[in-house]
Design a protein around this nucleic acid. Structure first.
Length: 415
RNA sequence: GGAAGAGUGGUCGAGUGGUCGAAGGCGCAACAUUGGAAAUGUUGUGUGUGGGCAACUGCACCGUGGGUUCAAAUCCCACCUCUUCCGCCA
């Protein structure tokens, strides 16, 4: 949620932001609506003051009752109109995007993202490389067929050593983050509408949500929803900030309309698994902690030996709630290119306003800023499979995971 | 799932129709006292939103949403949450 004062006081600047984002919103209408609703609010307040005054008078002068009764008719209609105006205004505000950091690149889609740096050595092979789908079958560790049979296309199984490796990866990642000061959570895997709305997934990504029939609940698209929602309506103590939270959960997305080569295998699925980083901090610190989350992402990939590059996400590839976003794209040998494995967004006060998350520090009282960043997902495991493959299909396990999964390679299934 | 009870400010807790945005205690802050501190004393101490340079002041808020009434923390209805007891259960 954008602060209405930004539209009142920095109208032209904000209008440019909407234009850069390609957001078709009518700010003039919003400004007028704001003006008329504030004017009406004053009238309503004045009538209420009169009502309150007359009501007290009733104790000594019963005749005043009739005056209040007639006054209330006018007040009632004005109150209704006011509510309608305010509802309408809130609905329009809910669709407005966040402001933008100065250094967000222009552009339409991910091809316009700006590469900041490349890290790691891209592996070379003297044999034809397999993609993760082929490796998954060869090693008998990924089963998309049965995922589709039991659930639906877009769901899959990790199996055997694949599942063991996945658990090792997710556990290892959680431990690394705990070591860096994060508090680990296990969260609900469903959330109510307010939580999704508050985190900005509604109304912006409504078609991505799995709703649960006959309830007001939906499956979470990310633990960001439950971790940020955790502090809805809280006034945090400034001394406790930043709060660094992490959780490992499944993530459910309908992925409406995403098909094609880029979604081959298990790259784009309805259910994936993610360790998340969430930070609540003071507004003046959000740039710093946005970078902190990026450092963590890079550290994890480096420890796992995965080559990657970091991109500064352009305005067209960033969601409306984002102020600034870094993506890390890892190298996928089977795909033969870089593909997104993490995204790290500074949401400034966009979520905290919607969820009413504030902090208090001395005389300062303000909305916190939130940072939402991936730590690792299944895709990281996919990168490991594709990058660490040998000629016969054997996959070498990254050293840091070996103590946890208990093996150093996964070999093809014996026939 | 069944039964009973409860949700009031940072916290505890009083308050069953008006003088209640709300007693009192604790906590917190400032000042006094002290060499310094404790103890003590005095004063102050909710949030949001609007008006005003300001002093100040209008409105709203006692779990949430409706309703009754000239007037609701207080009465009525629904919902949510918590506690206790019973049942079931990973």
């Amino acid at each position: 949620m954008i602060d209405i004062r930004i539209i009142r006081e920095h109208f032209e600047d904000y209008k440019k932001v909407c234009e850069r984002r390609g957001c078709p919103v009518n700010l003039d209408t919003i400004l007028e609506l704001d003006k008329s609703s504030r004017q009406l609010a004053q009238e309503v307040d004045a009538l209420r003051a009169e009502r309150n005054r007359l009501s007290k008078e009733c104790q000594t002068n019963p005749a005043a009752r009739e005056q209040v009764k007639s006054l209330k008719v006018d007040l009632g209609t004005k109150e209704n109109t006011l509510n309608e105006l305010q509802d309408k205004l809130m609905k329009m505000l809910a669709f407005l995007p966040n402001q933008l950091a100065d250094d967000v690149p222009n552009g339409l889609d991910d091809t316009d993202n700006v590469e900041l740096r490349k890290v790691g050595t891209i592996p070379t092979f003297d044999f034809p490389v397999r993609d993760h789908q082929q490796l998954g079958e060869l090693l008998d560790i990924i089963d998309t067929q049965r995922g589709a049979k039991v659930a639906q296309t877009g769901f899959y199984y990790w199996k055997g050593k694949g599942a063991q490796l996945a658990q090792a990866l997710f556990f290892w990642t959680q431990q690394q983050l705990v070591n860096k000061g994060f508090t680990l959570f296990m969260t609900p895997c469903v959330a109510k509408e307010r939580t999704l709305y508050g985190t900005g997934y509604l109304p912006f990504f409504a078609d991505q949500t799995f709703n649960i029939k006959d309830t007001e609940l939906a499956l979470i698209g990310t633990s960001e929803q439950t971790l940020v929602g955790y502090h809805a309506d809280d006034v945090l103590d400034g001394k406790d900030l930043p709060l660094c939270y992490t959780a490992y959960t499944p993530c459910f997305r309908t992925e409406a309309g995403s098909y094609g080569k880029a979604s081959k295998g298990i790259f784009r699925v309805h259910q994936f698994h993610k360790v998340e980083q969430i930070i609540f901090c003071k507004p003046e610190d959000s740039v710093k902690y946005h970078d902190f989350c990026l450092e963590n992402e890079e550290y994890l990939l480096q420890q796992l030996g995965i080559p990657y590059h970091v991109v500064n996400v352009c305005v067209g590839d960033m969601g409306a709630p984002g102020y600034k976003k870094y993506d890390i794209e890892a190298w996928f040998a089977g795909f033969g290119g870089y593909r997104e494995v993490t995204s790290n967004t500074n949401l400034t006060s966009f979520q905290s306003r919607r969820l009413n998350i504030r902090y208090k520090d001395g005389d300062t009282r303000d909305y916190v800023h939130t940072i939402s960043a991936t730590a690792v997902t299944d895709r990281v495991l996919v990168a490991i499979l594709e990058n660490n493959q040998q000629a016969d299909g054997t996959v070498i396990v990254p050293e840091v995971l070996r103590p946890l999964c208990g093996f150093d390679k996964i070999e093809p299934k014996k026939r």
